[in-house]
C-alpha cells in the first residue's frame, strides 16, 4: 500500500483529475465481474490498466462507457457523473473508446469510419473543420494514408487497430480509452503501434490503456494499475511494477 501512496504523491502534480472511478462494480449477465474498482486518470496523464485475460479490464472500460450495467460505484468525468448519462452521450462529453475487438464499421472506408463520429458528435465536440481533423489523423497514422479508401474489412490487423484508434481520435477526445491496442499483433507491428501511441500521448490527450502484457507499456505510460479477478491489486510506477516478481507471476497465471 505504501508504494501506491507514494505513486499518488508523485502524480499529484500531473494536473486535475479528469476521470475518477470509485468503488465500481460492473455486472455481466447477472454476475458481478469487477468488485469496487478505484482508479483515476489526471489531465495529460497516460495510465495503464494491466491484468490477465478475464481480469475485468474490458468490463471496467465498458462500464465507463455506459455499455455494461453497474451494481454500484461512481464514474466521474470532468466533475460529471457518467453513470447517469445515456451511453450515446458519453462520447460527446469527450471520451474516445477503442474496443478490444476492432469493432469497425464494415462496408465503409477507413475515411468514412473517421468521419462518422464527426458527423454524429462533431458539433457536441466543437469541431468546426472536419476535413482538417481527418487529415490530422491520417498525418498521425501515415500507414493508413494509402488505405484511405479501402473498406475496413480488407485491412490488416495492425491497420484495423489504427483505424479503431483513429476513429476514437475523431471525437477530438479529452480522454482515450484504448482496450488492448497491442494485442494479437506481430512484434514489429507492436513497436510500430507503440510509437504512434507515444505520439498521441505527447499531444496532451489523457490516455487509459488496458494491456495484458505488463512489459509492453512501461515505456509509454506514467502510471500503472494492476487488476486481478475484478479488483485493483496494485498501482504505481510502471517500471517498478513491471519488474516486480509477484506481478510477473500474476501475469503468467501462477501467482496467488
Amino acid at each position: 500500500m505504501s508504494q501506491r501512496d507514494a505513486a499518488v504523491d508523485r502524480e499529484a502534480t500531473a494536473g486535475d483529475p479528469l476521470l475518477e472511478v470509485s468503488n465500481l462494480s460492473a455486472v455481466v449477465q447477472g454476475f458481478e465481474v469487477t468488485h469496487g474498482i478505484d482508479l483515476e486518470v489526471r489531465e495529460g496523464e497516460a495510465v495503464a490498466l494491466v491484468g490477465r485475460n478475464g481480469a475485468g479490464k474490458t468490463s471496467t472500460f465498458r462500464s465507463i462507457m455506459g455499455l455494461t450495467p453497474v451494481a454500484n460505484g461512481s464514474v466521474r468525468f470532468d466533475g460529471e457523473e457518467l453513470l447517469d448519462l445515456r451511453s450515446e452521450l458519453i462520447p460527446k462529453r469527450g471520451i474516445g473508446y477503442q474496443p478490444e475487438n476492432r469493432d469497425l464499421f464494415t462496408g465503409m472506408t477507413v475515411e468514412e469510419n473517421f468521419r462518422l463520429p464527426i458527423w454524429t458528435s462533431g458539433r457536441a465536440r466543437g469541431i468546426d473543420d472536419e476535413d482538417a481533423l481527418v487529415e490530422d489523423i491520417f498525418d498521425l497514422f501515415t500507414e493508413l494514408e494509402g488505405r484511405r479508401n479501402a473498406e475496413v474489412q480488407n485491412l490488416s490487423g495492425g491497420q484495423g487497430k489504427m483505424t479503431a484508434i483513429g476513429r476514437a481520435l475523431a471525437l477530438q477526445p479529452d480522454l482515450l480509452l484504448l482496450d488492448e491496442p497491442l494485442e494479437g499483433l506481430a512484434p514489429v507491428v507492436v513497436e510500430n503501434l507503440k510509437s504512434y501511441l507515444h505520439e498521441i500521448i505527447k499531444r496532451d490527450i489523457s490516455v487509459l490503456i488496458a494491456e495484458s502484457n505488463a512489459s509492453h507499456v512501461p515505456d509509454i505510460v506514467d502510471r500503472m494499475y494492476v487488476i486481478e479477478r475484478g479488483e485493483i491489486v496494485d498501482s504505481g510506477d510502471p517500471e517498478v511494477l513491471a519488474e516486480d516478481e509477484e506481478i510477473q507471476m500474476l501475469m503468467q497465471g501462477g501467482g496467488e
Partner: peptide, 16 residues
Amino acid sequence: DAIGQDRTRARFIGIP
C-alpha cells in the same frame, strides 16, 4: 448503416 451493424458500436461513437 452503423446502427444496423451493431448498436453498441454505434453508441460509443455518439449515435443516438
